[in-house]
Amino acid sequence: MIPQAFEYEQPSSVADAIAMLGKHGGEARVLAGGHSLLPMMKLRLAAPDALIDIGRIASLRGITDTPDAITIGALTTHAEVAGAEVIASGCPILAETAAGIGDLQVRNRGTIGGSIANADPHGDLPAVLLALDGEATAEGPNGRRTIAAADLFVDYLQTSLSPDEILTEVRVPKASNSAYVKFNRRAQDWAIVGAAAVVHGSSARIALTGVGSKPVRAAAVEAAFDGSNTAEAAGHAADGLDAPSDTAASGEYRAHLARVLVRRALEAAMAR
């Protein structure tokens, strides 16, 4: 399968890339690792007029450690995130999530910025970013802005980035008591449901993958959690949830998975 023909642009800076996006007036897509976009283009589910390949912009790579947070360049691959000692120790949920995405070859190409900007509700990183209360930095013709995870994910494959903005980095607060647990049936498959738990003493932030058109907070679990009652609190994981039924699972089964996985994620987070 071969994608529909497109114009190919190779900017050498973020400013160039933004200008090229503007030139194509919303008909261009940003290419990072390409492991969501290229498969969609091969299936002709996407047929952009132009690809802006940001893969050679060196400033978009790398991991920066600060006392309270870790900043990760958008082009940093899942393999690099999974292998970074600073992330494994400071934000273990992110390291384990990156290590479980796709497979070895996919992790060598897929990027953190690409996964988050693609906002697939079955992707692992959006829920993890939401549970962490992380944020993304976007740059566009009007400058740079920071978007909290809670404001970033809008709907199925949709973020609050505007078409002429590029996600340049992701910032996550350090959270040592954090874990992500997902369930799927086959190797390298998308999560049917995933649960991200970030525990701070007697409070927790919980977010779920695969139960709606975007990652959702499990507010009822957060309200019930008292720092030790993992099983009781996790029982509320499906409260108010309207999980979809599809070929992978029924909504009812997803609700069951949510309760089980939230409990496991809370237990794993607290054991760290």
């Binding site: 290419l31 290229l38 091969k42 390949d53 070859q105 060598n108 190409r109």
Partner: peptide
């Protein structure tokens, strides 16, 4: 699967221009 700059990648999901 091939090696691209020493890393295993799926060459059906990489553009030659990349």
């Amino acid at each position: 699967t091939v090696w691209l700059d020493g890393m295993a990648v799926k060459s059906c999901t990489v553009l030659a221009v990349q």
